[in-house]
Amino acid sequence: MNLARVRLGLVAFSLFASAPAFADAQASLANADIGKGEKIFKRCVACHTIEKAGKNKLGPNLYGIVGKPVAQAEGYAYSPAMKAYGGEWTVERLDAYLLQPRTAVKGTKMAFAGLKKEEDRLNLIAYLNTFSEVPVGFGAAMEETASAEQTASAESAKNDVQEIEGDFGRLKVAPGVDTIFYACTACHSEMIIAQQGLTREGWDEMLDWMIDEQGMDDIPEPDRNDILDYLSTHYNEDRPNFPNPN
Results as ranks from 00 to 15, higher is better:
Lys52Asn: 03
Arg7Lys: 13
Pro101Ser: 10
Ala141Val: 10
Gly166Trp: 11
Ser28Tyr: 05
Leu207Phe: 15
Glu237His: 13
Leu198Ser: 11
Thr145Asp: 02
Glu190Cys: 05
Met110Asp: 01
Val134Gln: 13
Thr108Asp: 08
Asn2Met: 05
Glu205Ser: 12
Met206Arg: 14
Glu190Gly: 08
Thr130Glu: 06
Asn236Gln: 12
Pro243Val: 05
Leu124Glu: 04
Tyr97Trp: 02
Gln162Met: 12
Asn123Arg: 05
Val136Phe: 07
Ala17Tyr: 03
Asn159Ser: 12
Ser79Gly: 10
Leu198Gln: 04
Gly137Glu: 15
Trp203Thr: 00
Phe16Leu: 15
Ala23Val: 14
Asp178Ile: 07
Lys36Arg: 12
Leu98Ile: 01
Ser28Asp: 13
Glu88Pro: 10
Glu133Asp: 15
Ser189Gly: 15
Asp212Phe: 05
Ala186Ser: 09
Tyr127Leu: 07
Ile40Met: 06
Lys116Ala: 15
Tyr76Cys: 04
Val91Gly: 02
Trp203Asp: 00
Pro175Glu: 06
Thr179Ser: 09
Ala146Gly: 02
His234Cys: 10
Ala141His: 07
Gly107Gln: 01
Arg121Trp: 02
Gly107Asn: 01
Met1Gln: 05
Val177Cys: 08
Glu92Met: 15
Glu165Met: 12
Val134Tyr: 05
Lys42Thr: 11
Arg170Thr: 13
Ile65Pro: 00
Thr130Leu: 00
Lys106Gln: 07
Thr103Val: 15
Ser28Glu: 13
Ala183Asn: 06
Glu201Cys: 09
Ser18Met: 14
Gly67Ala: 06
Arg121Thr: 06
Lys158Arg: 13
Ser232Asp: 05
Ala104Ser: 15
Leu198Ala: 11
Thr233Val: 06
Trp89Arg: 02
Ala183Met: 11
Met210Gly: 07
Leu115Val: 06
Lys109Ser: 15
Ile125His: 02
Tyr78Phe: 12
Gly166His: 01
Asp238Phe: 03
Asn225Met: 14
Ala111Leu: 13
Gln150Met: 12
Phe16Cys: 09
Ala77Gln: 13
Gly139Pro: 03
Ala194Glu: 02
Asp33Ile: 02
Gly67Val: 10
Lys57Arg: 10
Ser18Lys: 09
Tyr235Trp: 10
Leu29Arg: 01
Ser14Ile: 03
Leu58Asp: 03
Leu8Phe: 11
Ala84Glu: 03
Ile227Gly: 00
Pro80Ala: 06
Asn129Met: 04
Glu88Val: 15
Cys47Met: 00
Lys158Val: 12
Ala113Gly: 11
